[in-house]
Design a binder for these strands. Structure first.
Lengths: 266, 266
DNA sequence: CGGCCTCTTTGGCTGAACCATTCAACACAG
DNA sequence: CTGTGTTGAATGGTTCAGCCAAAGAGGCCG
């Protein structure tokens, strides 16, 4: 700061002589821990640090970087939050490179959905965009194992009967199985996060009555058949109808709830 | 550990007497900074801490929590990475609650895409699922301002001529404008991350020849028209054709490159 | 009154030390 | 020789005390 004020005075004298001075943009000073984190992040993402590789222990990083331990720890912590490192305590522990899997993709997306307070309608619309595509891909790429899982999930759904919690678990399981059969990691992650978020945000007990459950089971069966026949057109069409129907039903209940629940509050 | 071995001996004696012993699961000890981070995170997400609200300064948090400053700082750092806090130094600074916007949604998704090394085909497939839906929504919900932005972006695209970088910027801008017109925050974030990631991953100079540029401009024009006419069917159909065509062209070039570029390496 | 200076508040960073967990090596009893 | 308990070392987790740097607040002097 002082070294920035000081020259400005002398420079003003020169400016009076008509000589143009160089222009400096307001420069941003990054935090030390961010610098280290960025360095390590790049080396992980570039593939220089491979999955499972152990970083040097903290105290050694302190030596090598010239930073303090707190700073090094902050950097490691940042990368742990970003799921690029996994840190284990104790002897033989340390920071290990970890290329996150589909689970953490789903977790991240879910956190973002919650953090941004995305509207439920937005979630439904997004699902209407994504899930039919998943069904279409599933129909093209399904293996027999995928099919078996779909059948299992559907059997469980039917077997659930009036046990709503069991029904809902089987429902999510079936939807995730469709996404997995599509073999697209990104769509799998999105769908997983979406279905969980929608499930969590919907007061689902309210409208999961016997009729809707029956309708759901029929729709799943027909979609599963299309996937079995590798008929991606039909799978997509039927899935579109299924999720749109669900969204409408949810909106219906939500509107009723809106009247019941938000009025007394205000 | 010792307290777990010790009783086992005395208990073994009792077990011989046929009396079942209680079973302990391996218990997990959370880190102090995680506990604090979780606490603050919940209070932000639940709405108790509102946007822009200032948390107490670090030293005061140290008093109130009974933790050390390093621990408190780690917790705040975690929340900063999750974009739930914004931390500013200097007097009048501190930790401020920050509900992340669409920019950080896109950033997060982009990081995940890169971190997981999602395949380019997966990106294209996901885009083929999402962007037509965006176009359909845009046709239904567009305002005149949205339309103006689309027209601007298209004009810029046409004006770019042979300046490929300028063309590409205008291209991304137009695609983002479509998403924004759809008014779905989640889709906006996904699309923004997708188009940037695809752009970054495609060796785009290679196949963005004059023909493709002309084709792109025509497609954009026709889609913009559909959105102007609020014809969501047409918008969706044309967008599907557009992005599929792009994906095929990219795959074509990629295959050619694959032969050229990966052979010499091996 | 306005510009400058100093003071205070706040985050950023350091260093040293101690605690907790885990694993490996080793010594000792059976 | 075997297995079992003990000890020690490596490593992350936490604390404490302190200094530095940035940035606003308020007073002081021209």
């Amino acid at each position: 700061m002082q070294s920035a004020e000081h020259p400005s005075r002398t420079a003003r004298g020169r400016a009076a002589a008509g000589e143009p001075r160089p222009r400096f943009d307001t420069l941003t000073v990054p935090k030390a821990s961010d610098v280290l984190a960025a360095e390590v992040r790049e080396r992980i993402l570039s593939g220089e640090f491979t999955e499972g590789m152990a970083l040097p222990p903290e105290r050694q990083l302190v030596e090598q970087t010239g930073l303090s331990r707190a700073t090094v720890r902050e950097a490691l912590r940042v990368l742990e939050v970003e799921r690029l490192l996994e840190i284990r305590p104790g002897r033989g522990g340390g920071a290990f490179v970890h290329r996150p899997g589909r689970e953490s993709l789903a977790n991240t997306v879910r956190l973002v959905i919650r953090g941004q307070r995305i509207r439920l309608e937005d979630l439904h619309e997004t699902r209407e965009a994504i899930e039919p595509a998943c069904a279409a891909l599933a129909a093209r790429r399904r293996t027999d194992a995928d099919l078996a899982e779909l059948d299992d999930a559907h059997a469980e759904l039917v077997a659930a009967g009036d046990d709503i919690q069991r029904f809902l678990r089987a429902n999510i399981h079936w939807h995730n199985a469709v996404a997995r059969a599509g073999e697209n990691e990104l769509l799998i992650g999105f769908m997983s996060a979406l279905s969980q978020s929608i499930h969590a945000a919907t007061d689902i007990e309210q409208f999961m009555d016997a009729d809707i459950r029956k309708l759901t089971a029929r729709a799943h069966a027909r979609i599963t058949e299309a996937i079995r026949d590798r008929d991606s057109e039909a799978a997509m069409r039927r899935m579109t109808r299924h999720v749109c129907g669900f969204a409408q039903a949810a909106a219906e209940v939500d509107r009723r709830d809106g009247v019941e629940l938000t009025d007394p509050e205000n």
